[in-house]
Design a protein around this nucleic acid. Structure first.
Ligand code: ZN
Ligand code: ZN
Ligand code: ZN
Ligand code: ZN
Lengths: 148, 148
DNA sequence: CTATCTAGGGTTATATTGTAACCTTTAGGA
DNA sequence: TCCTAAAGGTTACAATATAACCCTAGATAG
């Protein structure tokens, strides 16, 4: 791991937020979180499992899924439903919903806030929206150029 | 099947649209489409498969998945990513994106247009959004009352 | 009319994603 | 030190999805 690694710094920030809340960031959880932060694109649960197993850090799928559930609950990671894959949260770490734009070429994900107008529509007819899934699949600017 | 069944009418409207486009609505496709239209809530692929198999109308999962892919391509059905389940399109039949509100109690799904503001955000930084997944999970008004 | 082509679907096997259930370890507090 | 609860190990399996190949009926060309 490089010295001034942004991914590592983001992992650290996240873990500090955790301990303030009384939640524990164990070795396994830290490993998963750092892997997510270091990956340039979303990572599938089994992909993650294979890597961790290789490194002697995980035993079986349930362990990985438990960690992922934990990280998602804590707002440190997100699950991208359209990919069945996980990505580290790039914004202030707390449970939140976000709008994800996912490039089908390079896998890059950008995370932005869900527009208020969408929440408004969600709340029409007194519907209580407990969870929002908002994802756009497409091509990022860079990949449009390279696909010319 | 009742005489003046809305679900059947909607199925018919959909199939007419299909033939105008030169696509064929085979027996299997019609069966799947009608099942979706008659179900009050989204149906999983295997649930669908089991029903069709019981009725002697389907052989194996690939057949069902092929039909579902076709119906989704043609805009006659949608896949709800958060449920891994399928629902008949309730609006004018043509390929489109929609915002789905899904009740976790009764399973009811309401389909509305994706707000323009969301598309605007999707298109920022020259991102080309080819496909949108917009789903809200929560509680419909009726189910809020019955859960008091 | 016959040969060919193609879309749709049958069939088998397998890949991928996700969980249930139960047991063991370990870190912290009484 | 002993107890407890949270975390993780382990086994087995469920649920979702697809690859690859074959077969048939109906369209199309000659
Ligand atoms: Zn986030
Ligand atoms: Zn890209
Ligand atoms: Zn629709
Ligand atoms: Zn409801």
């Amino acid at each position: 791991m490089p010295e001034n690694c942004n991914a590592c710094e983001r992992s650290e920030t996240a873990s500090e937020a955790l301990s303030e809340r009384g939640a524990r960031l164990t070795d396994l959880r830290r490993d998963v979180l750092q892997t997510l932060h270091h990956s340039p694109k979303p990572v599938g649960a089994y992909e993650l499992f294979d890597q961790l197993k290789e490194a002697g850090k995980a035993s079986a799928p349930p362990a990985v899924y438990r960690v992922l559930d934990f990280l998602v609950e804590q707002g440190l990671a997100h699950k991208l439903q359209s990919l069945s894959a996980y990505t580290a949260c790039k914004s202030t770490p707390h449970a939140h919903e976000a709008f994800f734009r996912i490039c089908r070429e390079c896998g890059q994900v950008t995370e932005t806030a869900v527009p208020a107008s969408l929440k408004d529509v969600a709340a029409q007819d007194e519907f209580i929206a407990e969870h929002l899934v908002v994802e756009a699949l497409g091509l990022c600017r860079e990949c449009q150029e390279s696909t010319l």
